[in-house]
């Protein structure tokens, strides 16, 4: 889902960068308020893990592969969408600047899609679903699926504004492929959340009194 430089005109890229910087500033404010010395190892390990899973393209049939985004995982584990906006941009900068995965001028759009939209959709859909269903794993699964699917639709709309993809074919194609990728994201996010919550329950922010 990493948009390369060629896919968005520079002027539009600047607009996405400005929006992304606003959210990064809010995420820094979150970090200043919520970050504790106990949480730092978890946050840094999550960043390392997200870098690795985003480099691992898994086949999803239809001649397509996909990697996990990780925004939902971070937001659910750390109890705030701003946690995703804090971690994902640093991972995306390393991927873009050092490894050429995603563009420089399009990095703002990538931060918005994977960090902001991924984090907010993942967090709030999880909190909403878990309140209704009282089933933590099912809620994490669906939230992670949505946190892969919705950013892909956002990317398709950005591609439309950029004149790179026509709107409806772009939405259908991006939606179909990332719905398939989202299922994998859902399963792995459930496993990762449960694993981390078992290893470090003291630093994980999950709602209480729900079934796993």
């Amino acid at each position: 889902m990493h948009i390369p430089d060629a896919f968005i005109p520079i002027t539009q890229g600047i607009v996405y960068w400005i929006i992304a910087l606003v959210f990064i500033a809010l995420a820094l404010r979150w970090a200043r308020k919520e970050m504790t010395e106990e949480k730092i190892p978890l946050v840094a390990v999550l960043a390392a893990g997200i870098f690795a899973i985003q480099a691992f393209n898994i086949p999803v049939t239809m001649g397509t592969s996909g990697h996990l985004v990780g925004g939902a995982l971070v937001a659910i584990i750390l109890g705030s969408p701003f946690a995703a906006v804090f971690i994902l941009p640093m991972v995306l900068v390393i991927q873009g600047v050092v490894f050429g995965d995603g563009g420089i001028t399009t990095m703002g759009a990538n931060i918005i899609n994977m960090g902001v939209i991924g984090g907010f959709v993942g967090f709030y859909s999880f909190r909403g679903l878990v309140t209704v269903t009282r089933n933590q794993s099912a809620s994490i699964f669906l939230a992670a699926c949505l946190a892969c699917f919705i950013p892909a639709l956002a990317a398709a709309v950005e591609m439309y504004f950029a004149g790179t993809f026509p709107l409806v074919p772009g939405l259908i194609s991006m939606g179909l492929y990332h719905a398939a990728i989202g299922l994998i994201e859902g399963f792995i996010t459930v496993a990762a959340v449960n694993l981390i919550a078992t290893a470090r329950p003291d630093v994980v922010s999950l709602p209480q009194a729900v079934s796993i």
Binding site: M1, F7, N57, G63, T64, S65, A156, P166, M174, I181
Partner: peptide, 15 residues
């Protein structure tokens, strides 16, 4: 890792 294009690249190829 799969050598197939990712979702965004696949969409670009479809377009």
């Amino acid at each position: 890792a799969s050598g197939d294009p990712d979702g965004l690249e696949s969409t670009a190829l479809v377009i």
